[in-house]
Structure formats: C-alpha cells, structure tokens
C-alpha cells in the first residue's frame, strides 16, 4: 500500500527458503478451489491442535483479515478448519504450526502477561502477530485465509464483487456505466466524430 522499493534484503539463505514458500503460496495454492480447501471438516475435529491451540488459530485467522461487520464467525472457522486439515495431513506442517502458536503465546506472555487470545486490544494483537509475519507457519495460515476470503465465491458478494460475467452477457446491458455522481461519457456520435475527423 505504500512504496516498498527500499525494503531491506533478506540473507540469501532466508530468501531461498522464502522463495520456495512464496512459490507454493502464489502459484500452487492458487489452483486450489475454495471448495476443495474448505473440505467440510468440522471445526473442532483436529487431531493435531488441542483446544487452546485451536482457539488461538481461530483468533489468528480473524486478526489476519478482520472483517467483523462483513463476515460471520463460521467463515473464519472454515478457514481454521482448512489449516488444521492441512496440518493433519502433513507432520511438518503440524509441527511448525504448533511450534508457531506456542511462540505467539510465549511472546504474548512476555509482552502482555496473558496468552494471545486474551489480549483485548486488536491493535496489540496485530502488533504481536507482526513479529511472526516472516515465518513459514504464519504465511501458511495467512495465504489460506487469503484464499478462503478473497478467492471465495460465497464471500465475494459480501465484499461487493460480482465475479464472472460472461455467462450473463457481460455488463453491456447490466450497469457498466450506471453511476450518477460523475458526468456520463461521450455518446456514440461523439466518439464516432472523434475518430473520423
């Protein structure tokens, strides 16, 4: 959202590790359809996370993309369930997730004297999570949340996006130029005159 040209370079080792992750996140994950991702797993049914860890995960998903007035808790639960399902399926993912959640709580205790989920100020929670944003587990959760919200056809209408239009004949007769707070564009005659003069 701002210019980032001057951001510091990571060490080469970090970069290679991150490259791999980002490659997976920006390309492989893009292919996962929201349905496949949401898989219908019941929220509480993790074989990997205990109840406290599950609550932390759910809080984390909400803090990553907070839309309290737009989304329901169930939207976030579906994302947390996807994260847990992925952790159930892969021991490495599970370990980095549980370790990561542990580190978040440890940092929360250090800074605020309470576990992460008990911090009431949303800014403080976001600030806490910023410490972990370059970690693989964090970005794994973040991209799952990204796809679960912004690439989710069920959520699009809640955020004012209408999705595919070709099957409805496009917007030519459906409001491509229907706003009223600025003047209309030139008429066909005016546009014709412009290119034929």
């Amino acid at each position: 959202m701002s210019i980032r040209f001057h951001r510091l370079r990571k060490s080469d080792e970090d970069r290679v590790a991150m490259s791999r992750r980002m490659f997976l996140m920006t390309t492989t994950m893009a292919g996962i359809t929201t349905n496949a991702m949401m898989g219908g797993t019941a929220f509480a049914g993790s074989g990997v996370l205990n109840e406290a860890q599950s609550s932390s995960l759910l809080r984390m998903v909400q803090d990553i993309y907070p839309h309290p007035d737009v989304l329901q808790l169930s939207h976030y639960e579906a994302i947390a369930a996807t994260v847990m399902k992925n952790a159930d399926a892969d021991a490495d993912v599970a370990k980095s997730l549980t370790d990561g959640l542990g580190q978040i709580d440890a940092k929360a205790q250090e800074l605020f004297g309470v576990p992460y989920v008990e911090i009431e100020d949303p800014d403080a929670r976001e600030g806490l999570l910023r410490h972990f944003q370059n970690e693989g587990f964090f970005q794994g959760v973040r991209w799952t949340a990204y796809f679960g919200i912004y690439d989710n056809k069920d959520i699009w209408p809640l955020l004012g996006y209408e999705g595919a239009s070709a099957e409805h004949g496009g917007y030519i007769d459906r409001g491509f130029s229907d706003i009223t707070f600025v003047p209309e564009g030139p008429t066909l005659e005016e546009r014709m005159a412009e290119v034929q003069s």
Binding site: R4, T26, D63, D123, L129, Q133, Y150
Partner: peptide
C-alpha cells in the same frame, strides 16, 4: 477482488486491519 487483495500490499506484510479495511 482476489488480485486487489493480493497486490494492494504484496509480500509478507499484506494482511491486517489496514488491508481488510481497504478491501471493504
């Protein structure tokens, strides 16, 4: 909407209340 959310603030920092509010 999907690309806007991905490119508004690319990279690891592109999450949080700022991004969510912009997307609303």
């Amino acid at each position: 909407l999907p690309f806007m959310a991905a490119f508004l603030e690319p990279g690891n920092a592109g999450w949080g209340r700022g991004v969510a509010q912009a997307m609303e």
